[in-house]
Design a protein around this nucleic acid. Sequence first.
DNA 1: GACAATAGTCCCCAATCGGAGACATGCGCA
DNA 2: TGCGCATGTCTCCGATTGGGGACTATTGTC
Lengths: 206, 206
Amino acid sequence: MTAPAQTQRRNRTETEARILAAARRIIAREGFRGLGIVAVGTEAGCDKKLVTRYFGDLEGLVTALGGELGLWLGAAESAAPEGDYADRLGALLDAYGASLRADPVLQQALAWELVAPTPAMQALDAARSRAVGAWMAAARGDARPPPGVDAPAVNAVLLAALHYLTLREGSLGGFAGLALDEAGRQRVQDALRFLLRRAFGQGDAP
Amino acid sequence: MTAPAQTQRRNRTETEARILAAARRIIAREGFRGLGIVAVGTEAGCDKKLVTRYFGDLEGLVTALGGELGLWLGAAESAAPEGDYADRLGALLDAYGASLRADPVLQQALAWELVAPTPAMQALDAARSRAVGAWMAAARGDARPPPGVDAPAVNAVLLAALHYLTLREGSLGGFAGLALDEAGRQRVQDALRFLLRRAFGQGDAP
DNA sequence: GACAATAGTCCCCAATCGGAGACATGCGCA
DNA sequence: TGCGCATGTCTCCGATTGGGGACTATTGTC
């Protein structure tokens, strides 16, 4: 006679947390491609039925994950704003890059958004976008870019580069002939600083 | 009595071409996520057995596709190099961005590389990387960046931004609060030009 | 202490996927 | 012209997926 396969302690909130943690673990390990109802249930150590019962759908699971994923911006308590506009933006880019590089789930989300921009991923991106915008505004403080420069566009370009190079580092390990190891990352960081100072520095018009 | 379901004309090379074309069509329409043996066979109008027989595997199919995908660099016959280093790089970025935006298959490949860097995708990226490098060298001609500037790193940053923003345009339609419509793209292009001139322009040290 | 709600488990289902065996038949070459 | 190889088709298979129905039993409430 088969042992009755002892059932889990009954605690819905804890089970939901276990499921979300399992999903995050899978995403960090295999990316969103490996995220499935069955896989999450197995990883969480519970029946897959519970995944669909509590979150309805993979979309629902991702949406629920979005709330937790918003936590990463808590690490955004960067240093107090100092220096001119370029300095502050530079410090912001450094801090943002570090927190981005430290969070594989976030990286996978950024990459997956490009491949499968489902409503859930769109919402996730919108929330993050708002958070980053507020963060930038706070870090900028009262410093203003010099007139005649399209600061939003320039900032978008530099942020885009940071995103893409970080994703390349985690996947192909390099870009455009530049190996993204320790030294390469340093060169990129210096290049970003350099471009910021050239774009916004006071050496504008002597 | 069932009609004997007339069979295709027997021509292996043509069939292989049909399969590759079908794969490209699927990638352009649904991305690499929709690329499967069954889907390719159906789209090509032949039995899926032929896909595996001729290309062995999805990896093999992608590898074979890589040869065809290398064709896009044929459009790289940009204008003759004129002006200083910044001008030439600017023209190069414009041409590259235009051909990138015009090729949905290439965009999907760039996005998928970040998510699934399989050997086939790595090889595809390496080939493209070499091609772009040669292209840049040719476009640069005899112009040299001013000393003291890490030109490879700066170029990698600007290229990365161009890649990422193009991918965002095709997926989420915007980035960092910047809508990537006609006007947004123009602002990005101007920002890239602006950064190039600030980084490499002769207005270095007056 | 009885009872209802519900957390958890088990099992079945249809669909789809990649893969391969078996077979027919058209094409190229002698 | 005839023959053999290879091209194309049909069919079956095992695995996996998302989904849901049926059932058990625990928990907390009155």
